[in-house]
Write a protein that binds this DNA or RNA. Structure first.
Lengths: 149, 149
DNA sequence: CCGTATCCATTCCGATACTG
DNA sequence: CAGTATCGGAATGGATACGG
């Protein structure tokens, strides 16, 4: 008894996403991947996590189609973990985490890493949600509607 | 030994955010809050989670300043949990989770709930990240830079 | 260097009973 | 209705040893 409830087939996309990538480590691994990390050992050293956990997480992410295993780019006969298009599509989510943390979790003078655009080296703007006619939308301007075929 | 590593004072905002709200339940609670849920029992029934867990999570979120406890709007002598500005600022993150799930976790014909703008009832667009000069940015256009005072 | 396997501590979570 | 207390089972995570 007391089986952990699974959200795998939830009707809400938020729940389903969390089921796939909602644990803390996975999102940090993905963050590192956006920074260009590809090798097992790099992830491990960078995150300071146990190897068995990393192994499990990577396996899970590969199973979910977020990462893809490719032969190493150097001759090393090993593998590398690269983001699939599905994984790349998590970019906004990582940015969302980053921006919320920046805005709400740091003291005034406290330093933190910053995301800049490659071309000009300037900090990116905040994520924006717009309606179909281009209006900027906040929480109060939206509503969730259930859709049943 | 084997103490769980804390990311509370991490230099990366992504890690810090995950430390605060990165467990699966918290984000689902917050999602419900954006749908207008305010009462303990409503959260509990809606999410189907154990009351003690909900209690813990709410306490944690209040401690982190995401929720605020206010007296009940009806006369019921109980309390309600409403999002603070800091909590409201999580909107983009919830939307990010939703949109990634919608785009990547559902079969072609499969139905799911949808976020629409209140005014026209039309589905919202995808989140957008822009540079300071207005260009739309993807993962390849960005770079994370470490900042050390 | 890349991973897997094993062991153990900690944490998480669900069920239930209980108080106000 | 709104929560707290307690219990047991499950999952998670860290350390380490081991094999490819």
């Amino acid at each position: 008894m007391a089986k952990r409830t699974s959200l795998e087939s939830a009707e809400c996309p938020v729940a389903r996403s969390l089921e796939a990538i909602g644990d803390g480590w996975s999102l940090l691994i993905i963050r590192d991947a956006f920074d260009g990390i590809r090798r097992f050992g790099e992830f491990q050293r960078n995150l300071g996590m146990a190897k068995n956990i990393l192994s499990m997480r990577l396996r899970n992410l590969v199973a979910h189609g977020v990462f893809e295993v490719v032969p190493a780019s150097d001759g090393s006969a090993y593998q590398e973990y690269v983001l699939t298009p599905k994984g790349n599509d998590l970019f906004n989510l990582i940015i969302g985490l980053r921006q919320w943390g920046e805005a709400n979790l740091y003291e005034a003078g406290e330093q933190h890493s910053v995301m800049v655009d490659r071309e000009k080296g300037q900090p990116v703007q905040r994520l924006e949600l717009r309606s179909e006619d281009g209006r900027l939308l906040g929480p109060q301007d939206c509503r969730r509607i259930a859709v049943d075929g």
